[in-house]
Design a protein around this nucleic acid. Sequence first.
RNA 1: GGGGCGGUAGCUCAGCCGGUUAGAGCAUCGGACUCAUAAUCCGUGGGUCGUGGGUUCAAGUCCCACCCGCCCUACCA
Length: 477
Amino acid sequence: MYITTTIPYVNARPHLGHALELVQGDVLARHHRRRGEPVRFQTGTDDNSLKNVLAAEAQGVPVRELVDRNAAAFEGLRRPLDLSFDSFIRTSSHPGHRAGVERIWAATRHDLYQRHYTGLYCVGCEQFYPADPCPDGHEAPLQRVSEENWFFRLSRYQDALLELIDGGRLRIEPAGRRNEVLAFVRAGLADISVSRSAVRARGWGIPVPGDPDQVVYVWWDALANYVTALQDGDYGRWWVSEGRKTHLMGKGVIRFHAVYWPAMLLSAGLPLPTEIFVHDYLTVDGRKISKSSGTAADPLALVEAYGVDAVRWWLLREVPRVGDADFTEERLAGRADEDLANGLGNLVNRVVTMVHRFLGGRVPEVPARPLAEVSEAVHEALEEFDFRRAAAAVWTIVEEANKYVEKAQPWRQSRAEQEVSLATLVHACRELAVQLEPFLPTAAARVAAAVRGDRLPPPEPLFRRLAAKVDGDRIGA
RNA sequence: GGGGCGGUAGCUCAGCCGGUUAGAGCAUCGGACUCAUAAUCCGUGGGUCGUGGGUUCAAGUCCCACCCGCCCUACCA
């Protein structure tokens, strides 16, 4: 399985929305690896966007410097968020990217033509609009741009795209998004401009082969990353032979991935991705994430304040498959205290304590029942990209184990009975550690360490409470 | 303007092809227990299922209109 996230442009540091997509991809990657499937999980940054240039100008720093600094911040999310991506591509520095874009350009050359174009261009959207108010509400006024651009015959691929999506060869989830794409394609596809004048791009980006006055449209450039990042044998392995190629993305960029990108590949005669999963957006304190969200939307600051487990758990356990979700530090802490401290942490702690008190720390041998139902429920949920349902399925182990303690009441049992009940509970905790790994790798490792071996280490709390921290010490503005 | 998605208990949400008294978690309240991070377990209360029509023996669950939020798309004079 080849899993990709979108590559964000790096005009600013990463925010919580980026973390959501990365964590979702990470869960999929870890889950499928654990099932023994070969997995390549890839992310990266779109360095070539004109927005990066403008941001650098606004800050008065060289583009290269801004791009390098912010790209490093994205890549730097790996450790604090426990991400397991196998490769990180930067479109401005990956050794094969530019050559790859040029190859795709050449392969689609039969569908490219030059046309004089005059239109209103929104720099914020990197897109042309027919009338002045930019629908996204970017402040900069639309620029009247008149130039000779390269166009791609997107219109030729309408039927092929419909067949591809309607026939299910390109799966788009959730279903509502698939319908949205189908409606867009059925409405008719116009050819799209796929180059910009190099002058307008401030010389930033990849020059059009044979036409140095133009640079390749940043979307064309960025989309190509999914294949250009695959060097040498990797391309054959992960793009040609691999049966499952999954793109993760936010709802704002579905058209580029579900329409432009497959059309580019069709034109170039290259294999297509097989799945697209579209997530919705996060708001913070009821507002769109923006600069003013400050550290409350900064994944790094959140991890430092609350820990990686709490942050990942909120993203996975609380964000619905469909619909925007609102993040607050209160919700993060509430979920962490309820589930991690009171639920999981307390369970492990009470089990370990009882093993010490009643059995001298020794774990008795008992036949272990595998918890296949949980594993299956997790898998089914993840096949639908329902991370919340998958996380809930893992949690049934915590709930069942806590109920089991109340029912068995080991403190009232004979030694023989205690051996059975506590062995069962230790087994449940071990299984929990296994099932939890894709979601909370750090927490899973700590649980595993607490219940490993014949002799358990002395009990100690696995998770501290966070709610008090929120009251007195909100990190947000 | 066209299309799509949401609007279900205080909060976050489940409710597939229509069918017994509409569910879960959190919060509230009551009880139990003591192994545990005042944790856990059991139980209670609480809902005009956005509004109004319609189809049906039967609708949260299908159809129509409208209201609210969001998304996509186009902006006919």
